[in-house]
């Protein structure tokens, strides 16, 4: 706020300029706020209606209630979609964490051109449009005879979550000091024991972060799941099918819960990734790069 002092000196030009500057900054702020309104209004809206004591999803506000949260348990179809979706996601998290970590270790230890090829081969399924991946998996499963259901969805989700785990863990692996593995081998540990005692403990938080990310990705995936689901729907599929008939407020409630939980999980995941970068690497990495010269 230096404009008043500035306008004291040569009057006309400067004050015009400062007025323009104020208008420009107002527009900048308005645009900035509009973006956030655009992003958050729907989220807030659904949250508000989750607590609104009325079956009609419209204003005016007719009083605060928690009944829609209680109603989740009573709605059998909604509840089974929730538990089915959770079991899919937990299976996906378990398998993707192990397989993704394994891929990351393999890619990291390969030499020459192999890492690039391996990595690309792992990542492509995550980049391919969900529609293509979902349809091709559905056709393949039908040919091979895998029935639509829990396992078909799990396999479909693994196709795009394993790359995520691989990338997160690989990033961490590449930041590890290679002399630590050498030191371990030097001190009498073979490859496996070195991984178990030295490498894995330093990957734990990266794997945890990747698992949290995988959980949120898998839990609300729609496109691939749509192609692979049988009669039992996952939660997002169920909600989507309900919207066609005009959905009930308990859906607002469950979406609010899921939104809140995913925000918490994502915050934890990013915190874990960030903290991971900090404590050990801070001094060690700097020193390493200095030596590198």
């Amino acid at each position: 706020m230096t404009s008043p002092e500035v306008s004291v000196a040569p009057a006309g030009v400067i004050s015009m300029e400062s007025a323009l500057r104020v208008i420009r900054s107002l527009f900048a702020w308005a645009g900035f706020i509009a973006v956030y309104l655009f992003l958050y209004t729907p989220l807030v809206t659904i949250g508000i209606f989750a607590f609104n004591d009325s079956t009609v999803q419209a204003l005016p506000w007719s009083g605060f209630t928690l009944q829609w949260f209680g109603a989740i348990g009573q709605n059998g179809l909604l509840f089974s979609a929730l538990t089915f979706g959770l079991s899919v996601s937990l299976l996906v998290v378990a398998v993707a964490s192990v397989v993704g970590t394994y891929f990351a270790v393999v890619v990291n230890s390969a030499t020459g051109a192999a890492p690039r090829v391996l990595l690309a081969a792992v990542i492509i399924p995550a980049i391919v449009p969900g529609m293509v991946l979902g349809l091709s998996l559905a056709i393949t499963f039908r040919l091979v005879g895998i029935p639509a259901g829990l396992w078909s969805i799990v396999i479909g989700h693994l196709a795009f979550t394993v790359p995520v785990v691989t990338l997160v863990v690989l990033t961490r692996l590449r930041r590890l000091d290679p002399s630590l593995t050498q030191a371990s081998m030097d001190l009498g540990a073979n490859g496996w024991r070195t991984f178990w005692h030295v490498t894995f403990p330093q990957l734990r938080t990266a794997i945890l972060a990747a698992a949290l990310l995988t959980l949120t990705l898998s839990f609300d995936e729609v496109v691939i799941t749509f192609f692979l689901a049988g009669t039992q729907q996952t939660l997002p599929l169920f909600i989507w099918s309900q919207t066609r008939f005009g959905f009930t407020p308990e859906i607002n409630a469950i979406v609010t819960i899921i939104g809140a939980v995913s925000i918490v999980l994502i915050v934890i995941a990013t915190r874990v990734i960030e903290r991971e970068v900090d404590p050990f690497a801070g001094t060690g990495r700097k020193r390493r790069s200095r030596r590198g010269r």
Binding site: S179, A183, D186, G188, P201, Q202
Partner: peptide
């Protein structure tokens, strides 16, 4: 013969102490 079967130990330039 791999490093872990050699009766030789190394003190690394950056010490390579296990941080965890």
């Amino acid at each position: 013969i791999p490093p872990y079967r050699r009766d030789v130990n190394t003190v690394f330039q950056n010490y390579a102490l296990f941080p965890h």
